[in-house]
């Protein structure tokens, strides 16, 4: 279903040193490309989802705050080509750290076609406030409830359909680390973008 290719080449270190370079690169890309932005608190699996979508290796670890740069890659789903943007973690619209500010500026200045708010299924109550903020802001947001497998392991069941109803935005459950729910996610993304364009 998807065919992905790398936009960034060179070692990790090179990428790390290329501070904010990605921002200027983005605007010159062809118009037909849709823009997808991944946001969420640190350590919810944004980078894993980014890797799965683009095939670019962003450092992944079980440690909050590993992504300190904006990473960009490309992903093709069916006929649609997406520019995928992975952002540093952000807890709330009220920003504290420089990293959070980077993410907020990006949300406020670039016009994404879709924002994937990635959250940890085990910690919904801590993460949904930002979903509400994104909805409040009138941004095109889709909620990705990640780490569904871990939530299940600790005995948490989440009614995704009900959540979708209550929030009024599309919601997808995934376990990106073990590659579960990724196809559904891609399908819903395309549906969403098409519907929005129409």
């Amino acid at each position: 279903m998807s065919c992905c290719h790398q936009e960034k080449k060179g070692g990790l270190f090179k990428n790390l040193l290329r501070r904010n370079r990605g921002d200027s690169e983005a605007s010159e890309k062809q118009v037909s490309k849709k823009k997808m932005v991944l946001v969420g608190t640190p350590n919810v699996g944004k980078s894993v989802i980014f890797n799965r979508l683009t095939g670019v290796y962003a450092t992944v670890s079980n440690y909050p705050g590993t992504t300190v740069e904006v990473f960009r890659g490309t992903c093709r789903i069916g006929e649609e080509v997406f520019e995928v943007v992975d952002t540093p973690g952000m807890y709330s619209f009220m920003t504290i750290t420089e990293e959070e500010r980077v993410t907020r500026r990006l949300l406020f200045s670039e016009k994404p076609d879709i924002i994937l708010h990635v959250v940890d299924a085990k910690n919904l109550e801590r993460m949904l406030p930002m979903t509400l903020q994104l909805i409040e802001a009138g941004l095109p947001v889709m909620l990705v409830v990640n780490m569904m497998d871990e939530a299940q392991q600790i005995g948490r069941e989440i009614d995704i359909a009900k959540l979708e109803q209550l929030l009024g935005i599309p919601v997808v459950g995934t376990a990106a680390a073990i590659n579960k729910g990724m196809d559904l996610l891609k399908k819903r993304v395309v549906q969403y973008v098409k519907k929005r364009a129409a």
Partner: peptide, 9 residues
């Protein structure tokens, strides 16, 4: 919202 969608075993 959470109280309506999350069930804990």
């Amino acid at each position: 919202i959470v109280s309506k969608v999350v069930y804990t075993r």
